[in-house]
Design a protein around this nucleic acid. Structure first.
Lengths: 196, 196
DNA sequence: TACTATTACTAACATCTGTTAGTTTTGAAA
DNA sequence: TTTCAAAACTAACAGATGTTAGTAATAGTA
C-alpha cells in the first residue's frame, strides 16, 4: 500500500511508540519482547522494523521526550518574576500534572532509563543532574531570602521529585480524588507539612 | 568436599544472595544473568544450583525478607503508647535507616518485585497493601485526634513512602550528610514542611 | 587409608531474544 | 488498468538465557 493516512491522523509509528510505553510501564523494558509489542499492535514482529529503528530507539525516544518537557518547564519557571514558594508550587503542580496525564511516558523515563546505552545514557544522566541542580538552586535561593526555613536543599528536592514520581503508582488515589485535588494535597503537605 | 564451614560463618548461599542483591540493584533482575552472577561469586553458572533453587528464588527471598522487616516494625509502632506524630517520626526514621544501611535489599524489593510470579507476587502485593493501609490508619487517627491537619491520608503516606524509597538513589547526599542528619532533615521537611 | 556427601566442573538442552533477508500483498496515483 | 512504493508476511540468523545431566575434585570423618 502507498502512503496510508490513518483516519485519526496518528501514524503507525506513533501507535507503536504508544503501545511500547504502555508495555514498558507494565512489565519493564527488558521484560517486553518485540513479538509481544507487535502482537499488541496487530502485526508481526518483523513488520515493526518498517516503522521504527529498533527496540532501543523506542526507549530513547520516550526518555528524551519527557526530559525535554521538564527542562522546558524549568526554563519558564526560572524566568518568572515571583516568590520562590510560588515557583516551587508551580513545579510541583507541573510534575503532578504530567504524572497523571502523561503517566506512561513519565513512568518509563523515570524507571527504565537505565536500560539505555551510551552515548544516550550519559546525555540523559546529565539532563537529570542539571534539572535537579536547577531545582536545588531555587530552594537555596528561597532559604537565603528567608522564604524557606533552613533545611538541606538537596534533601528537599529529593523528597519532591521522588514523591511526585510515585503519583502514578497510586491509582486508587488518582481514581478517588481528581488531579487538581491531588495537586492541592501534595502542595499543602510538601510546603506546609503535616503538623497542625 | 563435605560440609564446609567458611571461616567467617557466612555460607556460600548467603554470599550468592548478597551478590545477587547487588547485581539486581545495579542492573535490574531481568538484566542480570546467572552467568554474570556466578562469575562475580567466582564459580560457574551451573554450580550455583548446588546452593540455590534458581533465579526466581533469589528475588523472592530478597523481597519477602524486606517486607517482613517492615511489617515487624509496624507491629512495634502500632503497639506503642505515644503521640501519632511520634509514631510517624519513628516509621520515617526506620525507613531512612533501612534505606541507608540495607539499601541493596530494600531497593530491589521496591523496584524489582514486579518480576516475581504468582503465587508470591500476589502475596507480596497483599503485604504492601496491608502495610500502606496500616500506615494510613495511623495518619487518619492523627487527624481525628487533631494532631495532624486535615489532609488526604493516602496522599500523605504516598509521599512518605516514595520519598524515603528514593533515599539510596541520592548517594551524593548520603555521602555528604550522615544518616542521622538525613533522618532529621526528612522528618523536619515531611512533618513541618518547608515554609518558615 | 577408604568412604561419602558436598561442591565444582564441562557440555548441552530448549527456549527466547532482537533483528535481517527476501518475498508478497496492498492501495493510492497515473 | 497499470504502476510502484509502503508495509505486511514467512523464515531464519546468531546469540543469550535459565537450567539440567553427568562427572570429577574436594575435604571432613571413620
Amino acid at each position: 500500500m502507498a502512503k496510508i493516512k490513518s483516519p485519526d491522523q496518528t501514524s503507525k509509528r506513533d501507535i507503536i511508540h504508544a503501545v511500547a510505553a504502555e508495555l514498558f510501564r507494565e512489565k519493564g523494558f527488558r521484560a517486553t519482547s518485540m513479538r509481544e509489542l507487535a502482537s499488541k499492535v496487530g502485526i508481526e514482529a518483523a513488520s515493526l522494523y518498517n516503522h521504527i529503528e529498533g527496540k532501543n530507539e523506542l526507549l530513547i525516544s520516550i526518555c528524551f521526550k519527557v526530559a525535554s518537557n521538564f527542562t522546558q518547564k524549568m526554563n519558564e519557571v526560572e524566568n518568572m518574576d515571583s516568590d520562590i514558594i510560588t515557583k516551587i508550587e508551580l513545579l510541583i503542580r507541573y510534575h503532578v500534572h504530567e504524572n497523571v496525564h502523561n503517566y506512561k511516558d513519565v513512568y518509563v523515563s523515570d524507571r527504565e532509563w537505565r536500560n539505555m546505552a551510551d552515548p544516550e545514557l550519559s546525555k540523559y544522566r546529565e539532563m537529570r543532574r542539571s534539572y535537579r541542580k536547577r531545582f536545588t538552586s531555587i530552594v537555596e535561593k528561597g532559604i537565603s531570602r528567608g522564604e524557606i526555613k533552613k533545611v538541606d536543599a538537596n534533601t528537599a528536592v529529593m523528597i519532591f521529585l521522588s514523591a511526585i514520581a510515585a503519583v502514578d503508582q497510586w491509582q486508587r488515589i488518582i481514581n478517588k480524588v481528581s488531579s487538581e485535588e491531588l495537586e492541592n494535597n501534595m502542595v499543602s503537605i510538601l510546603i506546609d507539612g503535616l503538623r497542625k
